[in-house]
Design a protein around this nucleic acid. Structure first.
Lengths: 149, 149
DNA sequence: GGCAGTTCCTTTGAGCTTAAAATATTCTGG
DNA sequence: CCAGAATATTTTAAGCTCAAAGGAACTGCC
C-alpha cells in the first residue's frame, strides 16, 4: 500500500514538472513565433516525413483524433506553412506536407525549442538526463505498438 | 551541445509517459465516473481545503486562468458536487466548497485514481519511485513561490 | 455489376483553455 | 465624500480536444 502512495507521489511530481515546462513552451511559442504547441507538434511530425503524411497517418503519429488534426492543418494551410495534395488513386485521402515556408519556419522554431528545453531542464545534470532517459525508454516503449508505419 | 540533445531526449520521453498516463486517466474518469481530469483537479484542490477557497485562490492553486475555473465550477455546481457562497464583508468574492455529495464522490474517485496510477506505473519499482520522487522534489520546488496560502 | 462493409476525412456538439474586455465592488488619497 | 486605482469574478473570442455522426470513395464478395 505504501508502494501505491510512492508511485502517486512520483506521478504528481512528474505532472508538475511537465505541466510547468509545457506552459513555458506554450508561452514562448506564442510570444516568439505566434504559434501553439499543437501546431508545433504537427510541423515536427511533418518535418520528419519529407514526403508528407496522410491525414489519418498524421493523427496516428500524434495520437490525437482525426477531427482534431483537420482543424490544425486548416490553420497551417491558411498561413502557408503546410499544403494538402490529393493522393493518386484514392480520392478520399489527402497527403499533408510542409511547404518551403513551413520548413524554414519550423527550422527556426525547432532550434529555439531545443535551447528552451536545455535551459528549462538545466537543473538536471547531463549525465543524469542520459540515465533517466535510458530508464524511461523501456518504460515508454509501446506495448501495443500498432503504429509501424 | 550534446547535453542539450540529451535533455531534449529526456523531455520527449517524459512527455510521452505523462501524456500516455494522462490519456488513460481521462478515459477512466470518463467511463467510470462520468467526469473529467479538470473537474477531478478542482475537487482534489477543494478536498484539501475543508473551508473552501475563493475563486481567485482556487485558480492560483491550480495554476489556471480565472475564467477557466468559472466554467468548471459552474458544471460542478449544476451536478451538486460544489457550492458557491458569498463572503461576508466582500460582495465581489465567492467561496467555493465541496458539498457532502461532492466529498463522497471525490473520496470514491480518489481511491480509484490512486489504484490506477499504481497500476499504470507498475513497471517502476517502488524503490526507484521513491528515489525519482526525491530527485524531482527539489527540481519542481517553486522558484517564485508566490502562492503561500 | 452491384451492394455491403470498410476506410478516409470532415463536421458537429460539448468541454477545456487562455488573454483580454467587461462588471461589480472595495480601497485609498485627497 | 469621492474620483481613481485595485481587486474579484464573469464574459467573450479563438483555438484545442474528443467522441460520434455524416459523406464520399474504395474493396470484396456474390
Amino acid at each position: 500500500m505504501s508502494d501505491a502512495k510512492d508511485r502517486l507521489r512520483l506521478w504528481l511530481r512528474l505532472l508538475k514538472l511537465t505541466r510547468r515546462t509545457e506552459a513555458e513552451l506554450r508561452d514562448r511559442l506564442r510570444s516568439d513565433f505566434a504559434t501553439t504547441l499543437p501546431r508545433f507538434d504537427v510541423m515536427a511530425a511533418l518535418s520528419q516525413h519529407e514526403d508528407g503524411l496522410k491525414m489519418s497517418h498524421l493523427s496516428a503519429v500524434l495520437r490525437v483524433s482525426n477531427g482534431n488534426v483537420t482543424g490544425i492543418v486548416d490553420r497551417l494551410v491558411d498561413e502557408g506553412f503546410v499544403e494538402r495534395r490529393p493522393v493518386a488513386g484514392d480520392r478520399r485521402a489527402m497527403i499533408v506536407r510542409l511547404t518551403k515556408s513551413g520548413r524554414d519556419e519550423f527550422a527556426r522554431q525547432a532550434a529555439a525549442h531545443e535551447g528552451w528545453i536545455d535551459a528549462l531542464l538545466q537543473d538536471i545534470p547531463a549525465e543524469e538526463a542520459r540515465q533517466l532517459s535510458a530508464r524511461l525508454a523501456h518504460l515508454t516503449q509501446d506495448k501495443e505498438s500498432a503504429d509501424a508505419v
